[in-house]
Simulated scan of single mutants.
Amino acid sequence: MAEQYSLPDLLTKLYDNQLAIEAALMELVLLEEQRGPSEACENARGALERIGENAGHIRQGIARLGRNS
């Protein structure tokens, strides 16, 4: 039978994926910015900013769920 994950474990995995996507997007933005500024880079940086703003809230929510499990 497949291993069962708790909700905090599952959310932690999703959070880790989000951070990995953030890192990959930053690499692509930095690479593209070497060619010069663009609207796509500005949009991507906006998305990165949103990810960063939400990261703390997500982490706190996961910690709270972990304490209540």
Score class of each variant (00 low, 15 high):
20 A>H: 10
12 T>H: 08
29 V>Q: 05
69 S>C: 07
24 A>W: 05
17 N>Q: 09
12 T>V: 00
41 C>Y: 14
23 A>D: 01
51 I>T: 04
38 S>N: 04
56 G>L: 03
35 R>M: 04
28 L>W: 12
69 S>K: 11
68 N>W: 08
45 R>C: 05
21 I>M: 13
11 L>K: 07
34 Q>A: 10
49 E>D: 11
9 D>A: 09
25 L>W: 02
68 N>K: 10
2 A>D: 12
59 R>N: 01
46 G>I: 02
18 Q>I: 12
62 I>E: 01
10 L>M: 12
47 A>E: 01
45 R>M: 00
7 L>Y: 05
61 G>E: 03
39 E>F: 14
67 R>I: 03
15 Y>L: 02
58 I>L: 04
37 P>A: 15
8 P>F: 03
1 M>Y: 07
63 A>E: 10
24 A>L: 05
64 R>K: 04
26 M>C: 08
17 N>F: 07
39 E>D: 15
53 E>T: 06
65 L>K: 07
19 L>D: 01
47 A>Y: 08
41 C>M: 06
40 A>C: 02
48 L>D: 00
46 G>L: 11
23 A>Y: 15
64 R>A: 05
35 R>N: 11
30 L>M: 12
6 S>I: 01
60 Q>V: 13
32 E>I: 04
28 L>G: 13
16 D>R: 09
66 G>P: 04
20 A>G: 07
40 A>D: 10
35 R>F: 12
25 L>C: 05
15 Y>A: 08
33 E>P: 00
67 R>E: 09
28 L>K: 15
9 D>S: 04
43 N>D: 06
53 E>P: 02
36 G>L: 06
54 N>A: 07
3 E>K: 14
19 L>M: 12
2 A>I: 12
4 Q>E: 14
24 A>F: 06
51 I>D: 01
41 C>T: 14
6 S>A: 02
69 S>V: 13
31 L>W: 07
23 A>K: 09
42 E>W: 10
24 A>D: 06
